[in-house]
Amino acid sequence: MSTNSVSIETTINGEKTSIDVTATERLLDVLRYRLGLTGSKEGCGEGECGACTVYLDGQPVNSCLIPAYQVRGRVVETIESIAPEQLGAFVASGATQCGACSPGVVMTAQWIVKHPHLLQSHGLRELMAGNLCRCTGYDGIIDALTETLAANGSAEEPVSGQDR
């Protein structure tokens, strides 16, 4: 495969999709500029800020660091797959301000909500550390997550600030 495009099969937000990608294209750009899935944002282009977080086979990853061809045969989920109804606590607690980090924050947060057993070993603040937010100081985000977990009955008391 060279700079010419190649067709890959992938599943994006539950739909099997065939897309032509070139070797140099990033997953983030394919999502945003080719598929119109502009919910994932670019904040840094180097895997620091997490604004471009999507799930790859269920795991949160930075889509700015993934060459698009690597998702061949795999399952990609973006912020567009998240139902607004799940986000009540995030609205109420002030988890979003400017919103540029929010799609990434929500992706990581919802992954934690789906995998509450992670809290047996990890604190929420550690799990969320890959999503930089410059507005909230994180309290709104952590409060929303804590509430959502409690509402789901999955709140074993999260280990807070556990030292590594």
Binding site: G39, E80, L87, V91, V106
Partner: peptide, 22 residues
Amino acid sequence: MKRREAIDKLTGREAYIDDIAI
């Protein structure tokens, strides 16, 4: 009062300049 645009921001629907197709 709930933030007006909160859901749009949380779900990635809010349109920043690079999200607007021109």
